[in-house]
Design a protein around this nucleic acid. Structure first.
Lengths: 243, 243
DNA sequence: GCAATAGTGTCTGTCAGACAATATGCC
DNA sequence: GGCATATTGTCTGACAGACACTATTGC
C-alpha cells in the first residue's frame, strides 16, 4: 500500500469544552474571547493543545477547565466527539476532542488565568448565530446541547446542573430550561419520586421565602433512568399526530 | 503557563473500526490478525493511521473499511469515541478515533488486502475474553456493542443489519440477536407497523420455502423512533421490581 | 388435510397527562 | 385569614405484554 519509507503524519491534538450551566432559568455556555490569531477577538470554546506527549486526553480537558474557566469541581465531564476536518484550523492540521461538562450555577463569570475573558452566554444566542464563534465551534456547541438534552431523558444528568442539595422544583426548572418546554409540576413529582435512586432526601424542608417550604434532595446513585423522562414534543398543529 | 519556546506535542492519529453484522442469528464482529509488532498474531480491530496530513478522519475510516475488510457499501458508519491513553500503544503516543459500522450479512469472511486475515467472530466470545484482543480494543468493542444496542431502541439502525429488502421476521431477528432477548412477533409487528416511516413496503410477499410468504419491506426514512422500541429487562429474580 | 410461518384482534395492567384538592409556610 | 408554593390524589386515554385466532403457502 505504501513504500517502506512511508511514515504516518503527526498532528496536533487539542481539547475543546462545551461547559453548560443554568443562569436565571436559561441555559448558558462558557465562552472565552480569543487573544491570539486566528480569529482574534472572536468568541470560542475554552480549550487548548495537549500539554505534553504524556498527558491523557481527559486530564487535558480537566486542566483546561481549571485554567480557562477556574472550575475545579466538575460534577460531569464526558467526551462528546472528535473534530478533525483538514481545514478547520488555518494553522495546520489540528484534531480536537470535544468534551461536554455540566456544572451547577457558579458565583460569577469566572475570569480565567489563560483566557483574556470568560463569560457565560445564553445558548440560544449562540445557536441562533447572534454570537459568532471561531473555527467549527458552532457545530460542536449544537451537538453538545443536543447531547445534554438527550441525556436528561434517560440519565440523571439533570442533577449535575443543581447544587449539592436542591428542591424538586429546582430540578424541574433544569428540565424546562434545557428542553425549552414547560412541565406539569405534579406529574413531574410523581415521575421523579417513582424513579428509585434518582434523588434521595437530604434533610428537612427549606423555606424559599414565600409559599410552603420544599423538601430538599441530593443526587441519587441511579445513573440510567428507566422509564425515561419524557421530552414532550409540541403537537403538530392540527389534530396532533404522533411525532 | 509555558515559556515562549513551548510547542504542543505532535501525535499519531489512528482510526479503529468496530464492524458488526449478523450471522446465523448471532452478533458478529470483524477482526483482523495482526501481522506486525506489537501484538503480532493477536486479533485486533481493523484500522490504521491517517494516510496523510490532509486526510479527513471519516474518510480514513472508510478507506480502512475498504482496505482491510473489502467493504465498499457502508449503510452506517459513525464515530464512537476517541481513545488516547498515553500507554495504550507501546510504539509511542497514538490516539485512535474509533468508529462503529453496521453491515448486512455478507457473502463470506472477506480477505483484506492489508490485513493478514479478516474474520467474523461472535461478539460473545470477544466480550467473554475467550478471544483476546490487542491494545485496548476490548474496551472499544464493549462500548461499540453497547452503542449499537442502545441505538436499536430509538433509531432505525436495525435496518442497517438487513439486506436491501427484508421481512419483519428478519428485522425482529436483528433485535433478538443484538439484545439477546426473545420478542413476541405479534407485538413486534404491531409496534413496527405503528411507527410510520420506520419501514416501507417493497413489493409482493416472498416465499421463504415453508409457511406463509412474508411481506417484504425496505428501510424507511425515519431516523429517530418515538416511542422507542423497548429492550425488556430480565425481571430481577424474586418479585420483579422495575429496573 | 396437515405443518409451518405470517399477520390481526382483543383483553388487561401500567403509565403519562390533565387537573382538583390539600398541606404548610410567610405576612 | 390570605397568598403563594409544595405535595398528594384521581380520572382517563394510550400503549405494552400476553395470547387466541385467522390467513396463506408447501407438502
Amino acid at each position: 500500500m505504501h513504500d517502506d519509507t512511508w511514515e504516518p503524519p503527526r498532528i496536533l491534538l487539542a481539547v475543546d469544552l462545551v461547559i453548560l450551566t443554568l443562569r436565571g432559568g436559561r441555559l448558558h455556555l462558557l465562552l472565552v474571547r480569543r487573544g491570539i490569531e486566528p480569529f482574534v477577538g472572536r468568541a470560542a470554546l475554552p480549550g487548548g493543545f495537549l500539554a505534553d506527549e504524556r498527558e491523557d486526553i481527559l486530564s487535558a480537558a480537566r486542566r483546561e477547565l481549571r485554567e480557562e474557566a477556574g472550575l475545579t469541581d466538575i460534577p460531569h465531564l464526558e467526551q462528546l466527539g472528535t473534530y478533525g476536518e483538514p481545514d478547520r484550523d488555518p494553522r495546520g492540521r489540528v484534531v480536537s476532542v470535544a468534551h461536554l461538562a455540566v456544572v451547577p450555577r457558579l458565583p460569577e463569570p469566572v475570569a480565567g488565568t489563560d483566557a483574556a475573558a470568560a463569560e457565560w452566554t445564553p445558548v440560544d444566542d449562540v445557536l441562533a448565530e447572534r454570537v459568532p464563534l471561531a473555527f467549527d465551534h458552532l457545530r460542536i456547541v449544537a451537538e453538545g446541547v443536543e447531547r445534554a438534552r438527550s441525556k436528561l431523558e434517560h440519565t440523571g444528568l439533570a442533577t449535575a446542573f443543581c447544587p449539592e442539595v436542591f428542591t424538586l422544583t429546582e430540578l424541574q426548572q433544569v428540565y424546562e430550561a434545557v428542553w425549552g418546554t414547560p412541565l406539569d409540576p405534579r406529574n413531574f413529582y410523581r415521575k421523579v419520586q417513582g424513579t428509585k435512586g434518582f434523588v434521595i432526601p437530604a434533610g428537612p424542608p427549606r423555606s424559599t421565602g414565600t409559599g410552603r417550604p420544599a423538601r430538599v434532595y441530593r443526587a441519587g446513585p441511579r445513573r440510567d433512568l428507566y422509564p425515561p423522562m419524557i421530552r414532550t414534543v409540541p403537537t403538530t398543529a392540527a389534530g396532533g399526530g404522533k411525532r
